[in-house]
Amino acid sequence: MNYLNLKKNENMAMIEINHQPANALSSDVLKELSILIDELEHDNEVRVVVLHGKGKFFSAGADIKEFVQLSSEDNFSRLSKNGQSVFKKIESLQKPVIAAIHGAALGGGLELAMACHLRLVSNDAKLGLPELQLGIIPGFGGTQRLPKYIGNGRALEMMLTSEPITGEEAVRLGLANHSYPEEILLNEAKRLAAKFAAKSPKTVRAVLSLLNEDKIKLDQEGYEKEAISFGEVFGSSDAKEGISAFIEKREPKFTGE
Rank of each mutant, 00 (worst) to 15 (best):
N11M: 11
N11P: 09
S27V: 02
V29G: 01
L30K: 00
K31T: 15
S34T: 05
H42D: 10
D43W: 03
V50K: 00
G53E: 00
F58Y: 04
I64E: 06
F67C: 00
N75I: 00
R78G: 05
R78E: 11
S85W: 01
L93E: 00
I98F: 02
A100T: 08
G107V: 01
G107P: 12
G109R: 01
G109M: 11
M114R: 01
C116Q: 06
G128R: 05
E131F: 04
G135K: 06
Q144F: 08
L146G: 04
P164V: 02
G167R: 05
E169G: 01
A170T: 13
R172H: 09
A176R: 04
E183V: 14
I184A: 04
N187Y: 11
E188W: 11
E188R: 10
A193I: 10
A194C: 11
P201I: 05
L211S: 13
D214H: 04
I216V: 08
K217F: 11
L218E: 14
D219A: 12
E221D: 08
E221P: 09
F230K: 00
E232K: 14
S236N: 08
S237T: 11
E241Q: 15
G242M: 05
S244V: 06
S244W: 09
K249I: 07
K253F: 09
